[in-house]
Design a protein around this nucleic acid. Sequence first.
RNA 1: GUGGAUAUAGCUCAACUGGUCAGAGCGCCGGUCUGUGGAACCGGAGGUUGCGGGUUCGAUCCCCGUUAUCCACCCCA
Length: 454
Amino acid sequence: MRSKAEQLKAPRGTRDLVGPLQDLFEKIEASGRRAAEAAGYRRISTPIFENAALFVRSVGEETDVVGKEMYLLQDRKGRRLALRPEGTAPVVRAFIERNLASAGLPVRLYYLGPMFRYERPQGGRYRQFHQFGCELFGSSSPAADFEVVGVARRFLEDLGVASHLVLNHLGCPRCKEAFARSLADFAKTISDRLCPDCRRRAERNPLRLLDCKVPDCRDLHSLAPEMELCEACSANAASIKNALREAGIEFSWDSRLVRGLDYYTGVVFEFRSADLGAQDAVLGGGRYDELVEALGGPSTPAVGFAAGIDRLALLLERTSSSPLRPFVVILPMEERQTLAAAELADGLRAAARKELPKHCSDREPVILSALRARRLKTALAEAAEAGARFVVILGENEMARGSVTVKNLDTREQWSVSVEDYSRAGGTNLAHFLREHSVPRKKAEQETISGGKD
RNA sequence: GUGGAUAUAGCUCAACUGGUCAGAGCGCCGGUCUGUGGAACCGGAGGUUGCGGGUUCGAUCCCCGUUAUCCACCCCA
């Protein structure tokens, strides 16, 4: 007989975010929000499913992402919907549909959330994965490209992720089109000597030819025509390089960097990590000046990027993380005080809102009640292990006196604190005491996520 | 979608070529210890060896299927 757990497992390529992994996700998301908002980006949340046609028209019918990786569904009225495989198209759709340009250009938006692609799962690659992305509408200036790369970089730096920046310039639609055509023509002449993948690429996405990893193909491709940028495009590429150099941002230029989504034009870039194996792109983006118009909006230049949160979490897994550290743990001595302990904890949390110092960043202090009585020795050891600062002991003696014993786990001092009018006064007595006796910890110790155990 | 590998306790891993081999460490629970600190020692619970078939007197081990994971390709975050 099969157990329920075996029959109902999470679908392939999906996973539950819980414990340290969830902590990590929140940390990464917080860094994203910080980096984006600091540059004036506002969050947008779009639906998780859209009309399938949106992605066909933007990402491109011939790309793998829409050709074979989309989760397609039909609702009861026969509408063709798709779980979003990427974030840019929905944001552009919303930009047009909500007439966001009316607030005045440029418009800066960021998003955070799950994306879906039907792919063979691998480390750092999931069928439901998560992205943080920024989109900047309304500027064709290299300053906009520079800004977006800068936000991306700040975000990664803030997380402490080591990565290197690679850029390329695909040219304006005219350059890109011409180059693709000449590559395809070239491929045709040597078609019989190319690997099967490259033969397919020649048809569907000639630019990708340059990215082949088969050695023989690479040799052939070295004979391929070079990208020729028009005057405007090469000036654009040059000014971006200059800006990056002047800002002291390290990067490499790779003419083989081609992104798999059709809408890219102009600058494209990736941040790669050496610690990720084959899935080394941790963040990717570029310019998509034609997309807004292609989807029915006013001609509007735009740049953006998307970062893979799951991949970042993979990189940071080693360097984290401790669970929520309690500020106070209430310990009942005997079974019959457990309910009183829970009540005390509840009242203390209410009081703490107003009265306790913000001891750990932007979170409320964590106040726990132990739900069972254990030997004091073990209970104290556990509380100390969990990193609690105070322990409140509630036993026969305390109940008789109408007080509790408060112990500071750092200094080992302890006091008897009266709680007689505790509930009437909204818990001020104990809360006040704790406030008076808590000194701010050093910064490193305040971190609830990145700080290890003492 | 293609090629390859793996699957044993909550976790990390053992078990010579099929024959008491279902184990260890960590974790968890309890005791030594009736109300004061992360220790030590002792004990306990937990597995039809991913699942389903097959070969065999006998399968964790061999074969087939299946599911999941990992690696590479494709592609991408």
